[in-house]
Amino acid sequence: MTDLTKPADARTALMVEAQGVRKSYGHVEVLKGIDLEVRKGEVFVLVGPSGSGKSTFLRCINHLEKINGGLLSVDGELVGYRMKGDRLHELKDREVAQKRRDIGMVFQHFNLFPHMTALENLIEAPVQVKGESKADARERAMALLERVGLADKAKSYPSQLSGGQQQRVAIARALAMKPKLMLFDEPTSALDPELVGDVLDVMRGLAEDGMTMIVVTHEMGFAREVGDALVFMDGGVVVESGNPREVLTNPQHERTRAFLSKVL
């Protein structure tokens, strides 16, 4: 909707489009003009050293962070703003919340609601936000828990689950809203190594079902195997992008090579 030089069908194939996205906290600029495109149905992997701005960029996509410059759109609609004539108008909280319904997010530290059981975590938003009936929401929630292999933990509180189990519940919670885009912010970084596999398996299953996913991760094996596109970020800019298998095996930039030599 913003770049009119592209043909219409090329733009509708895009889930996320970023043009010169900038973000700063006070005088510190963390994103210095990010340009990237995420196609529908694609698994898009963001890698880079900590502090490179990849998590911040992810959080801009569902407007948990407000961008200071550039244009960012999800499924053809601007994030956090509306174009009226040739001026941008900020969206109201209610409108922002409306758009977030369609974007699922999975956090590094799970952020499950600790005062609710796994099942209650899943039905909370569908009932409160979408006004679904409790019976319907519960039925779908059980199916989702089944899918992540935790149907028997429906009545457990998060504190009674292992980290890996909590993260799988968190993925199911996001899926309960039937999102068109899933954001993963280092979903396995806080897990014991032996628990990482279960979470990655669930994500792999999602990718096979054609879910559009943007994944910030340090799991290069996952990126290589499941990723359709990869971007390497450093210091708030995109250093290199392309097919994950090519970038990871044959990086073109010195900075990428240095980073990969440490994590691979």
Partner: peptide
């Protein structure tokens, strides 16, 4: 993180 998780699910400030 609790507020962020709730907002990410599309919940309003009030809820």
């Amino acid at each position: 993180g609790q507020t962020e998780a709730a907002h990410a699910l599309g919940m309003s400030q009030f809820n």
